[in-house]
Write a protein that binds this DNA or RNA. Sequence first.
DNA 1: GGATCAAATGGAACCGGTTCCATTTAGCGA
DNA 2: TCGCTAAATGGAACCGGTTCCATTTGATCC
Lengths: 337, 337
Amino acid sequence: MSKTTIRDVAKRAGVGVGTVSRVLNNSPSVSEATRQKVQTAIASLNFIPSQAARRLSQGKTMAIGVVVPFFTNPSVVRRLQGVVSVLSVSEYDLILFDIEKVDRRDMALRSIPQRNLADGLLLVSLTPSDMDVEQFALADIPTVLVDAYHPALNRVLVDNAAGGYQATKHLIDLGHRQIGYISDYLNDPFNSPVRDRFTGYKRALAEAGIDFRPEYHRQGEHGRFQAQQMTHDLLALPDPPTAIFAYSDTQAIGVIEALRELSLSVPDDLSVIGFDNIEAAEYLRITTIRQALFDSGVKGAELLLSIMAAPPQTPQEILLPTELVTRRTTIQHNNAF
Amino acid sequence: MSKTTIRDVAKRAGVGVGTVSRVLNNSPSVSEATRQKVQTAIASLNFIPSQAARRLSQGKTMAIGVVVPFFTNPSVVRRLQGVVSVLSVSEYDLILFDIEKVDRRDMALRSIPQRNLADGLLLVSLTPSDMDVEQFALADIPTVLVDAYHPALNRVLVDNAAGGYQATKHLIDLGHRQIGYISDYLNDPFNSPVRDRFTGYKRALAEAGIDFRPEYHRQGEHGRFQAQQMTHDLLALPDPPTAIFAYSDTQAIGVIEALRELSLSVPDDLSVIGFDNIEAAEYLRITTIRQALFDSGVKGAELLLSIMAAPPQTPQEILLPTELVTRRTTIQHNNAF
DNA sequence: GGATCAAATGGAACCGGTTCCATTTAGCGA
DNA sequence: TCGCTAAATGGAACCGGTTCCATTTGATCC
């Protein structure tokens, strides 16, 4: 029942509303004696200033909207944790939006800036369309992309092409020449990393003089079970790969489970490399490409805060490196020398 | 630059502000012709109603505050995913608060209802103090606890004592009589599950006529590495346990890593059982106690929404069951029969 | 002692919606 | 055609803060 207002406080303290407001905002131009009187009145009335009223009169929301797709995806969660670690110690509240369905994407992305309930927007692993970007500009809302790209927007990126190259190169260096790639759908317009890693994969193959074999590339919905199925498909090939590069660690886990089903040994029968270095990859000793997931969230949040403080002329870009982490799922291939 | 207001729209459409407001809120008492005029004006001015103003005049925030401790804890994340799955399709926004430090707990819990920026509050794995609860009542803010208990508040609970009993009973049934328990600090006032599971552990021992041996119980900060260390301590005992019950799967992973360091085999040399059934437990084939993590979040969010719609007279309680999931880290103990 | 100026304070106007009451308009029956 | 009621509409007041301008207070200096 916090219906006490600033005017009640003013009356109780025997001062004007402006003075109470000044006390609330630590304005220096209030005498110590008055400040005390007001503080006493606030305490005795159990007064709680209305955030809504403050927001309306100041024209600021003191909130940041964070939009994530598939909140169940572990790498998205890890990035979000980085975002949260920064925002939870900032003066901004974090409003979380989860977009599970593609058809909700457009609606959500359009409605968030419109309702202007946030002073800034952070999109994680989500590529906005040109129309969305236009909306952001119209609403004049500072926006940062994490793990997604748009030329007009500030972004924190991971060098996915380099990562795809590193992964494939690692397998090639181990003597593998038949290397499968299991990934999400390449033609998803909102998922550019899947294409970038594929580019790196093909470049590594080309450099090593290995022809790209389309039948070695399988694509499907992202997920452990789908990857498991695709692995079975790959291994049913007349000339199956000796190593598999999985687009994500989650998918690498699916690959490994498929092999377990077939009583095949990893890495002796087949080498597997993942991507992301999520926690489970460490537990399962999966060789993978580490990308700074948590850090990308941190950097994204920091970038957003700095942009909100001082808007840059041109979109900023932060590029994070990838790194090979060698564990137990990849091994030298015993070529028929 | 969304400085167009409802008055601009009214002028443009040649109607009163009240009528525009009615159109915005789909009031039935507007003629179709007028509605069209207003819609046209809204579209041509690119008008965006201010959420802040609406909130102030309506006295509702249309937001729900969700507070989690240690957002990096996988079981907390899983619960949160359940919460998000419900709220993201509701008409409420989700404001996320993460409390990493204990000293921020009090401040956060007190300030959230105070700033009344949420119509409802959901605390995950976080026990509020009596003083906090008083604040909630004072602010008249509907509150639900998930995985935490307070007599005056609505809650969604897991039967931790039963789970602790099940875990210990399972080990006893396998022939183990020297059973260690690795846990968080028992005296943490805000962590009641740790005590409940301990109670179940002791009850199972007592029923089997096994004396509780204090040296078999180790407690420390929650975490994989801490559990790893405690395992080393336990195994350095003159008469070490043959099985270990870990308070959480995360800690069970630490136990297993310690054993790997000692070149001991799980489960042949030592049986290990965890708690929670997080995803990694499945990958690592860890025997554990399943609790409905995701579902607890779903139930909590649903309960909160229903309470906000119709406040119950007495605090509601939902109790979720636990279930033994047998995998590869526990095995029959070869007793000296 | 009086003039000057800075500090402290009061309070109306404002932020942009919603709501409710007063007023106008339309529809219908006699 | 008049009267009555219901539907549609206009707009002031309000939500509870902030801000800015006008005013009061008090100290300083000549």
